[in-house]
Every structure is written in C-alpha cells, then in structure tokens.
C-alpha cells in the first residue's frame, strides 16, 4: 500500500506500507524523522505526539493508511528553520530537559496547549501534559518551562 501525505509542509509518500503499520513507524523508519520518539507504542507516554490536521495525537496509535491525504506536523516542524520556537527555548532555559527522550512529545503537547490557552494555570498545564511521561525531571521544571514560554509568547 502506498501512503501520501504532507509532513511539515512537504508532500511525501511511503511505499509498501503494511496494513497494520503506524504513522510513527512511517515517520521514523521510512521518512527518517526521528524527532517523534518510540517508547511505549500504546498511547501511554506521549513521546510520539504529533499533529494530524491540527489535532494533537499519538502517532503510534494512528494507522499509516489513516494518514493518507492528511497534514502532519511533527516536532521538527515546530521550530522556524534553525530558530527555536519559544516553547523549545523555554525548555532549554528552564532546565526541563535531562535525558531528553520525552522532550519532543512534550514540546508538541505544550505547543498545542498554548495555542488554545495562552495563559494556562499550573493545573491546566498538568492536565494538558497528563499524557506525556517524563522519568527524569519530576515535572517541576517542565511546568516552569511552559509558564516561561507562555509569558514570552504573550509579550511578543
């Protein structure tokens, strides 16, 4: 099966996609986009978070064929060329990155939150990131980073 879709603004296709193959597999193994991480493959960790037609989802739970004709944005598409997005910059500065495995998924999920809720409370941040697991940081610095990003984005 051949699947064609847009990823980060570019039209791409993957050939010989197996019926049960996930979008995450296509992104990583067929298109070389390694930003979306593969950890649990069961929707629990959020490290594979991407946008499909503007909706935040776990790429591991999207069937490859379901991506046909859709518009996908991965963490690679969040930055503006080489300039980090304010959410990414804030994660770096707030020390919210340790091993970094969870970071791409958190960036996309935090990005989605700030699109809908530009000034989130701590409770709202926790709810929005409930599907993203981080084993290293204990979340305090992640909350700081999202608050920091929100402040900066509000002032620009």
């Amino acid at each position: 099966m051949k699947v064609t879709f847009t990823v980060n603004g570019q039209r791409v296709s993957a050939d010989e996609v197996w019926e049960g193959e996930s979008l995450l597999y296509i992104l990583r193994e067929r298109l070389g986009l390694y930003g979306s991480k593969n950890a649990c493959e069961q929707g629990e960790c959020g490290s594979c978070s991407v946008y499909v037609d503007g909706t935040l989802v776990c790429a591991c739970l999207v069937l490859g064929g379901q991506a046909q004709g859709r518009d996908i944005v991965t963490v690679e598409g969040i930055a503006d060329g080489h300039a980090l997005h304010p959410v990414q910059q804030a994660f770096v500065e707030a020390g919210a990155v340790q091993c970094g495995f969870c970071t791409p998924g958190l960036i996309v999920a935090a990005h989605d939150l700030l699109r809908h809720t530009p000034e989130p409370t701590t409770v709202e941040i926790r709810e929005a990131l409930a599907g993203n697991i981080c084993r290293c940081t204990g979340y305090a610095k992640i909350l700081d980073a999202v608050h920091l990003a929100a402040e900066r984005m509000a002032s620009t």
Partner: peptide, 9 residues
C-alpha cells in the same frame, strides 16, 4: 478518559 491525545482521537 486517558489524556488529551487519547480524547482527541
């Protein structure tokens, strides 16, 4: 239900 990612889908 689950998380935002799960509820969106």
């Amino acid at each position: 239900v689950g998380s935002p990612q799960i509820r969106n889908r």
